[in-house]
């Protein structure tokens, strides 16, 4: 099974899984921290709300529009 890392933790995924689904199945199941400190998770699932923005291999991506790939390094925002 292919594997990626979310905030340093390894995560195995089935082929075709979106990064949003991976985030919601791992760690605290969140994607970012809001400006007032709330943890947030993917909301709209279709590239509109930007709640699922994460850093993937150093670049900003929307988790709901990105398919998991082996070796990806995903960081949820601090």
């Amino acid at each position: 099974m292919p594997e990626l890392s979310i905030d340093g933790q390894p995560f195995r995924f089935a082929q075709g899984t979106t990064v949003a689904a991976a985030l919601m199945s791992s760690g605290d199941r969140c994607s970012r921290t809001s400006v007032s400190g709330q943890r947030r998770a993917p909301l709209c699932g279709m590239g509109i709300c930007q709640e699922c923005r994460v850093s993937i291999d150093g670049l900003r991506r929307l988790a709901c529009q990105t398919i998991c790939r082996d070796g990806m390094r995903i960081e949820t925002q601090p």
Binding site: A21, R40, C64
Partner: peptide, 17 residues
């Protein structure tokens, strides 16, 4: 966390949630 759109939930489930 735990609240999503309705279509959003569908999309997330199809995406592997």
């Amino acid at each position: 966390p735990g609240v999503t759109g309705a279509g959003g939930l569908q999309a997330l489930i199809k995406g592997g949630l």
